[in-house]
Simulated scan of single mutants.
Amino acid sequence: MKSMPAALRDYALQIANHEMGHYVVARALGFETGDVTLKVTMVLTHHGGASITLTRSISSIEAMKEHLERRMMVLFAGAMAQTLPAKHSPEKRVDKSKAAAILKGEFGAEQDYAKIRELRHLLRNIAYPDTDPASSERITAELKEITDRVWSRTQQIVEALADTITGLAGLLVERMVIVEQWGRPADTYEVVLTGEMLEGLRPVQAIPALSVWA
């Protein structure tokens, strides 16, 4: 959007990358998806969301483990995608240290991280049912193994689908409009891309179906 100040546009693109990271990886991993929304203000605050349906049939412990891993990947993907370089950059690599900082609350993704922490404990409880609850060192090691494996797989997926993520994020920002506010200067830009609109886009239709353990 031409009238958006450059600094605000750069900020909006980072947050758009975050939301499209959730959206694209969710679709790649088989989740039903809906609307993607984004709102940013002149003072660099934001609110965004990618609607993902978590309802699914789970008929075995293996299916439960796979579902938990997929959900963790979707949550990790937002922070990773937020660190992707600009669309014109030839190298599409995740900045791992920055992604970790985003998750731990420096940039507003602490809710994603809180969910990840709970999900990894549930996954560990299922994957290692015989661990003594008093064995804190072993439990810490098991949690680390799960987290490192899911993090690594998510990074592979985000980097493989980086062009799709950044392309859709750019489209999201291009469609932002300034919101009229009665009696005071308008300082908020927002956009909603509905699930139906997104599914009509060729890049969305081209998102590959991926396996957790591929």
Results as ranks from 00 to 15, higher is better:
Thr140Ser: 14
Ala141Ser: 13
Glu142Gly: 01
Glu145Tyr: 01
Glu137Phe: 06
Leu119Gly: 01
Ala114Gln: 14
Glu145His: 08
Arg120Phe: 05
Arg117Met: 14
Ala127Met: 14
Gln111Val: 10
Pro129Thr: 02
Arg124Tyr: 01
Arg138Tyr: 01
Thr147Gln: 09
Glu137Leu: 12
Glu145Ala: 15
Ala109Gly: 04
Thr131Cys: 01
Ile126Ser: 09
Glu110Asp: 15
Arg117Pro: 02
Leu143Gln: 11
Arg117Ser: 15
Leu123Cys: 07
Asp132Ile: 03
Thr131Val: 15
Glu110His: 10
Arg124Met: 15
Arg120Pro: 01
Glu110Val: 09
Glu137Gly: 08
Asn125Phe: 09
Leu119Trp: 08
Tyr128Asn: 05
Asp130Arg: 10
Pro133Trp: 05
Gly108Ala: 06
Pro129Val: 03
Ile116Asn: 04
Asp132Gln: 02
Arg124Ser: 13
Asp112Tyr: 01
Asp148Met: 04
Asp148Phe: 01
Thr147Met: 06
Thr140Phe: 12
Ile146Leu: 15
Thr140Ile: 06
Pro129Phe: 06
Glu110Tyr: 07
Ala127Gln: 14
Glu142Cys: 01
Leu123Ile: 08
Ser135Gln: 10
Ile146Asn: 02
Arg138Met: 12
Ser136Asn: 08
Ala109Ser: 15
Glu142Val: 03
Leu123Thr: 06
Thr140Arg: 15
Lys115Tyr: 07
Ser136Thr: 12
Thr147Lys: 03
Glu142Asn: 10
Ile139Cys: 04
Thr147His: 09
Ala141Cys: 05
Tyr128Thr: 01
Arg124Gly: 03
Ala134His: 03
Glu118Gln: 15
Ala134Met: 10
Asp132Tyr: 04
Ile116Ala: 04
Ala134Asp: 10
Lys144Pro: 00
Thr131Tyr: 00
Ala141His: 05
Tyr113Pro: 04
Ile126Arg: 07
Ile116Trp: 05
Leu122Arg: 13
Ile146Cys: 00
Thr131His: 00
Glu145Met: 10
Glu110Trp: 07
